[in-house]
Every structure is written in C-alpha cells, then in structure tokens.
Design a protein around this nucleic acid. Structure first.
Lengths: 146, 146
DNA sequence: TTTGAATAGTTGTATAAACAACTATATGCC
DNA sequence: GGCATATAGTTGTTTATACAACTATTCAAA
C-alpha cells in the first residue's frame, strides 16, 4: 500500500534537494569569501580524512557516497592542490592510501567552523526537536534507498 | 546565540544531501529501466513546464533554483531531444518563451508515477507526521538561505 | 532623443557526477 | 602452479553546475 504522502507541488523539492543545494551554496560562498580555494566536494573528502586518514580510495567512495571515478578525480584535484597524497599500500599494490598534507591539516578548524555557522543560519528559528525528526527521516530515506 | 545542533558526525549528511542524492539516483535508474532517455535535471524543468508552459527561461531559473547558464544548457538539451521549443516573445524580444512538444506532454504521466513510486520507497516505514515535520524543516532551511 | 542602467539570454572555462570500458593486482579453486 | 574471478583504481564521454564575461534588447531619466 503506497502511502502517497506527496501532493504534486511538494514532491519536487524533496527529489531535487533544494534545501541541501542551498546549504552547499552558502557554505561554498563562505569558503570563497574566506579566500579558501576549495570546493564543497573536495571539503567533503577532507572531512572524512580528518576523521581518519590513510584510508583507501574505495573506503572514501563508501564514506562519501560517490563512485570510483568521482573519487579518482577528486583525489587528483586535491593532490594538485597539495592537500592530500596517494601512498601505495605495501600489502596490496592495487590500493592507494590517502594521507593529508600539512596544509590540509590546517584547514580543518576554519572550514568546520564555517560549516557549523552555515547550518546554524540554515536552522535558525527551527526548534531542536523538529531538527531531530528531520535528521531521523533523512537517515531512514538514505537507508531505504542506498 | 548559535544553537549548535550538530555533532560532528551528523553535520556531514545535512550539507551533502545524501538523502536527496539517493532519491535522485533511484529515480534516474527508474527512468533508465523504463527506457526513458531523460536526466533528472531535464525532468525537473519539464516538471515546471507541465504546471505552466510558455514561461521564460528566467522564470525557469527561479522555479528550478538554477542560474541562467544552467537553464540555457538544459533548454538546449531538451530542444535537441525534441521535448521543448524556444519561441521568441513578441512583446519583448529579449525573452524566449518555452513550450512543450507533443512527446514531452506524453511523458508527464509516466514520469510522475515513477517519481511518486520513488518517494514511497524512500519514505517506507516513516510515519506521515514525521514526513510533514521534515518537509516543514527543509522548507524553512531553503527560505532561510535562498 | 539620447544615453546609461537593468534585464534576458549565451558562451567560455573549471569542477563534478554517472556510466562503461579498461589495466593491474590479488584471491581462490582445480 | 595456473586460470577464472573479484577487487582497486584509471580513463573516456556526456551531462550538469558555478562563475565571469559577453551580446542584445528594453527602460528610464536627463
């Protein structure tokens, strides 16, 4: 039994993700204004490397929900920016382990602060309990479809 | 006063829009499986034209939350697919009015059904009242940032 | 009526995503 | 050991997005 929760006019934003597009754009502008030469997508890769570096490109694929060619090219660009370095694994020569450079380590604090700032702007006036419900629903959606 | 509702691990999905990415991918796969040669982005333009055709590219920009070059190229591609037609406005020669072709009119029912199907899969097991809260929050986020 | 600003749309360039096809390496089974 | 298969990563191609710079047209004010 389909639950048909969407009237026509509402279906659109949910599919196109206007809210997350708006968040990403705002954060990108903050990066640009701060003179950070970094895309949101590049930042999202660094985000996972800050949590744990020395992981493989495949692990970055899983973490960032991207396919292998996308990660290959993001790592290409991050390497050109001197933010990460591919290091061939010694155990398995198919694998590249990705490590952060010094400049990348320095970016963490500033960019995370801008990200939090952006989310606070986005969620201004939204009560915490509604934010919690929203996070929960989006997680379920992701789990249902991934 | 920042409300700091996001612990580090949760901040990521909100910014990257993993849920809407998953929805869009699932819908794209349904299009492909049905032999529909149409991207989600192209569909999102048709979506607004089905509601009202004969609008300008600028109005499509506003409706779809895209900039002018993006719409120029989407309309280029839709025209190549013989789904829309640019008609110069008679009142204002700067303006192109965008009209649907016969083939595009025929796509509405099938694609909207696939979109609803996708959302039902995405929201399976989510109670209606939580979906409502989620929609409300995403709308506020969009309004806060747009 | 002319001229300067605003608006509509296009083009160039860089980055990114999806998909298919490819290479190289590792694994597992006979 | 040798061969089929799986896995990790790369490359080519198409489509889309963002930004800047551009053309054409309209509008409004001096």
């Amino acid at each position: 039994m389909p639950n048909n929760q969407f009237k026509k006019g509402e279906l659109y934003s949910f599919i196109t993700g206007k809210a997350s597009t708006a968040i990403a754009r705002r954060l990108q502008k903050k990066f640009n204004s701060s003179g950070l030469n970094l895309t949101i997508e590049q930042w999202s890769v660094l985000y996972h490397l800050w949590k744990q570096e020395g992981i493989s490109q495949q692990e970055l694929c899983n973490a960032t929900f991207r396919d292998k060619p996308s990660i290959t090219r993001l790592v290409d660009n991050l390497e050109r920016l001197n933010l990460v370095k591919r290091v061939p694994s010694e155990n398995d020569r198919r694998i590249n382990l990705i490590y952060l450079t010094k400049p990348a380590q320095k970016l963490q604090e500033e960019t995370m602060a801008l990200a939090e700032e952006t989310l606070n702007e986005a969620l201004e006036t939204v009560p915490t309990e509604k934010v919690d419900v929203c996070k929960e629903v989006l997680q379920i959606v992701y789990d249902n479809l991934k």
